[in-house]
Simulated scan of single mutants.
Amino acid sequence: MLATHDTTALDAAIDTEIRAALASLRTELELKLESSTAMAQPQSHPLGSHVHALAIGMVEDLTGFFVAADTLENAAAVTGDDLEDKAQYWWSPSEWGWQYTGGTAPGIVTTEIWALAKGLPEGADDENENGEYAALAGLYEERIILCLQRLRGEGELRNVQGEELWVWVHYADASNENIDDTSFARLNDRATAELFGKRWGGGLSAVLEERFAVLQPEGRET
Rank of each mutant, 00 (worst) to 15 (best):
D11P: 07
G119Q: 14
A13R: 02
G131L: 01
F184T: 07
F196L: 05
L54C: 05
E218S: 10
V167H: 01
A40F: 04
V78H: 04
G119E: 13
M58H: 10
H5Q: 03
K198R: 12
V59S: 14
T7H: 11
A9H: 15
G107A: 06
G155W: 04
V160Y: 00
N159W: 14
I145E: 06
A53H: 10
A20I: 04
L83Q: 11
E95L: 09
A193T: 07
E84H: 11
W200H: 02
A12C: 10
D126V: 11
I179W: 12
N159D: 13
A174V: 06
T16L: 02
D173Y: 07
A69K: 00
W114A: 15
I113P: 02
T79L: 13
L72M: 04
E142W: 06
L148I: 05
E127T: 14
R199V: 05
D181A: 12
A134T: 05
L195I: 01
Y140C: 08
T7M: 14
M1Q: 12
D70N: 09
E221F: 03
A105I: 02
S36A: 11
F66G: 02
E163V: 00
A77N: 09
A23H: 08
V214Q: 13
V214Y: 03
T37S: 13
S49E: 13
N128K: 08
A174E: 05
G48P: 09
Q149P: 06
E127M: 11
T63L: 03
E177F: 03
R150S: 14
G202V: 15
W96D: 11
V207G: 00
L120S: 04
P217Q: 09
T110Q: 11
A185Q: 12
F184L: 07
L146C: 01
V59G: 05
D6F: 15
A21V: 00
L83P: 00
L120V: 02
E177N: 11
K86I: 02
L157Q: 10
L10D: 13
D61H: 14
A135T: 01
Y171W: 15
Y140K: 12
V169W: 00
V59K: 13
E129Q: 09
Q216L: 09
N188S: 05
Y140G: 06
